[in-house]
Amino acid sequence: MQRVNMIMAESPGLITICLLGYLLSAECTVFLDHENANKILNRPKRYNSGKLEEFVQGNLERECMEEKCSFEEAREVFENTERTTEFWKQYVDGDQCESNPCLNGGSCKDDINSYECWCPFGFEGKNCELDVTCNIKNGRCEQFCKNSADNKVVCSCTEGYRLAENQKSCEPAVPFPCGRVSVSQTSKLTRAETVFPDVDYVNSTEAETILDNITQSTQSFNDFTRVVGGEDAKPGQFPWQVVLNGKVDAFCGGSIVNEKWIVTAAHCVETGVKITVVAGEHNIEETEHTEQKRNVIRIIPHHNYNAAINKYNHDIALLELDEPLVLNSYVTPICIADKEYTNIFLKFGSGYVSGWGRVFHKGRSALVLQYLRVPLVDRATCLRSTKFTIYNNMFCAGFHEGGRDSCQGDSGGPHVTEVEGTSFLTGIISWGEECAMKGKYGIYTKVSRYVNWIKEKTKLT
């Protein structure tokens, strides 16, 4: 034993070699072989497995989906700052455009905790909710729209109204504003409101030439003092309507412009014939205590009207009353817009006519005020429907199939267009061939041609 100890002390290297040989010859039971080890760690190889990531292109799944990435790591994937920024906006807080917040056709661009709407022409605001041009839906104005110097929408209202708090709607500024039905039992019968379409306001006024200088022999019209197929109006439903009495009662109609003036057809009036105007009328054979009678003290036909040349060209006249009318729910003026808007309103496509005229061709006159909704007829169809001249200051309205029309005794009465609950004068009943005849239409004086003249002559002093 002493000898062994001496050998170990003198030859430590020998001992180490012996131990190493023993270990190498022993069977290893701690580690699995290569094949079995792979069965336990069965993990798919990654895209760049075996390579240094710093030297390969980034992978979106590896960089940002398996674990949260930084902007720089995302930049490695896209290799483009702009594309990385677009991805980053949604990656950080989701897609803010998912709810489609942009209105009126706006395009949404996502941002971090926010979004941006790219608005089409005519709109602005956070969600493109603000109209900035009158060309689109009248700028959301209830009545009139004008573009300011910086191309912003400025709404306005006709006389007797003021802008509401929203700067879009119009509200009454006087007790009985024009064009409004205020009798409670008839307010439910107000005709369907007309909503502004998209309009090209630059070209809204037709490029028409008034044929002022045409000389033409007097034409022989049949029954051209021209509501057939209409309905009984309720008291106060058309408070701007008046009836004219002269040699015979209810020979023509008219509309209240203001307390002192009536507008009617020029062919209705004769110099030297006494005319009485009755406002607030409903049943011409009954006294309903809503009527107001006034005498006409002055007749002003349009300066281009000449019955000797043509009885229905420039067929418009103004009547001055001896005493002002007292405005109330049964006696209310009709609204008159400017030339541009009167023309736009007419193009809405349908209007209402009213009167006490004959209820059928050569038949009896109506006792109760009649009204009828009539569609506008395109000019080409209008011209083809008659052998008589249709001037540019006239328009056609009615039904091709016949059966409904204005008729004798309705002449001078109103053709009105309702705009968001307020009625505007767009025409004056003038003439036609018979009444409600198939293929024939009622012919009306186009008020847009005469609004400046009306307003100039009827100013209240």
Rank of each mutant, 00 (worst) to 15 (best):
T381M: 14
T290Y: 11
F221T: 10
L369T: 14
S217V: 12
G230C: 12
D315G: 03
F224G: 12
D338A: 06
L130I: 13
S184F: 15
F71T: 03
N452H: 12
S107T: 13
R140P: 08
D315L: 00
V202F: 11
W88E: 03
K188Y: 15
L163Q: 04
T209E: 11
G254A: 05
E320M: 05
S187Q: 12
K362P: 08
L32V: 14
T276N: 09
D212P: 07
C117W: 01
M6I: 07
I309K: 11
N38I: 10
A207F: 07
P197Q: 13
Y441H: 05
V278T: 13
N36I: 10
F31H: 07
K39G: 11
L383V: 08
D232Y: 13
T81R: 10
A9E: 11
K234R: 12
S49A: 06
A207Q: 12
S184Y: 11
K137N: 14
E61K: 05
Q408M: 12
I284E: 06
E129A: 07
N258Y: 02
K247T: 13
Q143K: 00
I336K: 00
W118G: 06
Y22S: 14
R358Y: 06
K347C: 03
Q237V: 07
A366T: 15
T381G: 04
P333F: 00
V296L: 03
S411V: 15
C170L: 00
E434H: 14
V257N: 01
G229Y: 15
T85E: 13
D223I: 10
N222S: 14
V30Y: 14
P414T: 12
R364F: 06
E270G: 10
E35V: 10
N203E: 08
K260A: 04
N393S: 15
S182F: 08
Q2K: 08
Q2G: 13
M6L: 13
G160E: 03
L41Y: 06
G427A: 02
S430H: 04
P197M: 13
E27G: 10
D315C: 01
C69D: 00
L325F: 13
Y371D: 03
E98T: 13
T84F: 05
G105S: 10
E231V: 14
E67I: 00
G122K: 05
L14W: 14
N127Y: 11
T158L: 09
S11I: 14
I256V: 07
S448A: 11
E270W: 07
R75D: 15
L189D: 15
V183E: 11
T386D: 05
F221A: 14
W118H: 14
L327S: 04
V248W: 09
E270M: 07
I15N: 04
Y391P: 15
D249Q: 12
V242C: 04
H415D: 00
C268V: 01
R449Q: 15
E340H: 12
F71D: 02
V248Q: 13
V92A: 14
L211T: 13
R294G: 02
E286A: 09
S204F: 14
T458L: 03
E54D: 00
G58N: 04
L23E: 02
G105E: 07
R46G: 02
W261H: 02
A266H: 02
F345Y: 13
T386F: 10
N304H: 09
C69E: 00
V4A: 12
L163V: 11
L327T: 05
T81P: 13
S49Y: 05
V331T: 06
E208K: 09
F360S: 15
C335G: 01
C117R: 02
D95K: 13
Y444P: 01
N283D: 12
Y341T: 09
A308N: 11
V451K: 04
N393L: 02
R191V: 15
M394E: 02
R358I: 06
T158M: 13
C108V: 02
R384P: 08
C117F: 01
K440L: 04
E323P: 05
K234Y: 15
I334L: 06
E320V: 00
T133D: 15
